[in-house]
Computed example of a mutant assay.
Amino acid sequence: MTDLERRLTAIEDQLAIADLRSRYCHLLDGREWPAFIDLFTEDGVFEGLSAVRGRAALTEFFVQRVPAMTEEFWHFCSNGTVALNGDRATGRISMEYLSVMNGVSYISAGHYDDEMVKQDGLWRFAARRLTFYFLAPLHEGWAGRPFHNPAT
């Protein structure tokens, strides 16, 4: 592979990873579960409000438990970084999360730490780890509030 081909492949991979991360937000917010779960590898990991591994556990968590915690939610991600290493990549992306739980509007922020792999020409999450900085009722604000899960 020439230097130009390597550089072009790296650009294509970075664009595909940006698309993967965007589709994550859109499919999750739209509750399009089969397409959403397909964003993960067969043994993919999600760690956040819970830790789950594999598509069956991911499906149970996102299809059953997430909707039980919140009536509505919207994810907004920005400031993504990516470090490519062949068919593997790591990165961090900032996240703002708005939700409605028990009729109360919440605001939160945090970041995802991602491990991604390219399989059969498609990038997928091998692991996505969520760190919340805070989660607070919108009417109270977030100053000085550590993360807590009001659904528990």
Rank of each mutant, 00 (worst) to 15 (best):
R92L: 12
S94H: 12
G54K: 05
A83G: 06
T131V: 12
D87S: 12
A51S: 13
T81K: 01
L58S: 08
W123F: 04
R129G: 07
E60V: 03
P137W: 00
E140I: 03
L84I: 07
V100D: 00
V63A: 14
A136G: 06
A109W: 01
R128L: 08
Y133N: 15
F147G: 08
R145K: 15
G144F: 02
I93D: 01
E140Q: 12
R124A: 07
E140N: 08
S108T: 13
V104Y: 00
R55V: 02
R92H: 10
G144D: 05
R92W: 02
N79T: 14
L98D: 08
A109F: 02
V100G: 01
I107G: 12
Y106P: 06
E96G: 10
L122D: 12
G91P: 09
Y133R: 11
F76E: 07
R128E: 03
H111M: 06
R88K: 14
S94M: 14
D113A: 15
A151R: 02
E115G: 04
R65W: 01
M69Q: 14
R55K: 15
Y133W: 11
A109H: 04
A51W: 02
L138W: 02
W142Y: 14
R128C: 02
A143R: 15
M69G: 09
W142N: 12
G144H: 06
G86D: 09
H139P: 00
T59F: 00
G144T: 08
T131I: 06
E71A: 13
G141F: 01
D114G: 11
L122C: 09
S105D: 10
L98F: 10
F132A: 07
